[in-house]
């Protein structure tokens, strides 16, 4: 059981919650994640670590309402409890001084990117961050990202803020202009990570991505999170979630993420009709 200490809305369908989980915070590192369940009938929902407050043992997660479970999670208020939180899971992102690191975050991916960018900055990297969203109101953590970046670029798909376009475009631009980049960390929707890898591959720049396949246990027990990396099958929850983006089979990941579309629709419709009745 874990009590929600704070909750905040960061934009349409984007929420932040804070949980006091000392045994997780004590061990957690950027790039890792937790799994939570909202109640006894709930599924296991993987969520990245968006921030850690070591002094007060507080974990922050930021999530987007995309289906039934995240919609229901959004209805939780401070003081209410989640039935389980487990973590920290997965391997931490390899943090070291690469030189110049570009941190690319798309949409909800900015949340897990933030602690990684902070850690990269902390160990001496020059950090250039590129964050983007579909439109202005969906962009969050701008100030936090600005604080820890040497340079911050913003894009929106509709041009309502920053430059119009995708987050991979400014990166392509920099590379074309022969800017020296030593490391790229990209987190966001699958097509976005794929696009970033497509851009960096010809330049052979080490590019890590954080994968978000469907998961259940998150400890290597069920195999649902398998992804193909360099032709080998890996379990994202224990071998990742970070992988060398140039080796990831993104198309397979996209397909596997759609496995339960029909059931997800049923769950959401039923949830909405139950909520409507209340």
């Amino acid at each position: 059981m874990s009590k929600i200490l704070e909750k905040e809305s960061l934009g349409p369908k984007i929420n932040l919650i804070k949980l006091k989980v000392p045994h997780i915070v004590r061990k957690a590192k950027p790039g890792q994640f937790v799994i939570l369940r909202i109640h006894e009938r709930g599924e296991r929902i993987p969520m990245s670590i968006a921030d850690l407050d070591l002094e007060n043992d507080i974990l922050t997660i930021i999530f987007q309402e995309v289906g039934k479970s995240t919609a229901e999670l959004a209805t939780f208020k401070p003081g209410e409890t989640l039935s389980d939180v487990i973590g920290p899971l997965g391997k931490p992102t390899p943090i070291k001084n690469y030189g110049t690191s570009v941190c690319v975050g798309g949409g909800i991916g900015i949340a897990p990117l933030h602690p990684i960018a902070k850690a990269l900055k902390g160990c001496g990297n020059k950090v250039i961050s590129i964050i983007g969203a579909r439109s202005k109101e969906l962009l969050f953590m701008e100030e936090e990202m600005r604080k820890i970046s040497d340079e911050l670029l913003i894009t929106t798909d509709d041009g309502s803020y920053g430059t119009r376009g995708l987050v991979s475009e400014p990166l392509a631009e920099m590379l074309k202009n022969k800017k020296k980049i030593d490391f790229v960390m990209a987190i966001g929707p699958v097509p976005m990570m794929k696009a970033v890898c497509y851009v960096t591959k010809p330049y052979r720049i080490k590019t890590m991505v954080s994968l978000n396949p469907i998961m259940i246990d998150g400890t290597g027990m069920c195999g649902v999170c398998r992804v193909s990396v360099g032709g080998e099958t890996k379990f994202a929850c224990v071998d990742g979630p970070d992988f060398d983006g140039h080796k990831v089979d993104f198309d397979e990941l996209s397909i596997r993420l759609k496995m339960y579309l029909k059931e997800e629709k049923i769950a959401m419709e039923r949830y909405l009709s139950l909520m409507g009745k209340q």
């Binding site: 009938r41 709930g42 296991r44 479970s69 496995m259 339960y260 059931e263 769950a267 039923r270």
Partner: peptide, 8 residues
């Protein structure tokens, strides 16, 4: 859907 986790 009484429980949230789906199976095919």
């Amino acid at each position: 859907p009484d429980h949230d986790t789906p199976i095919f």
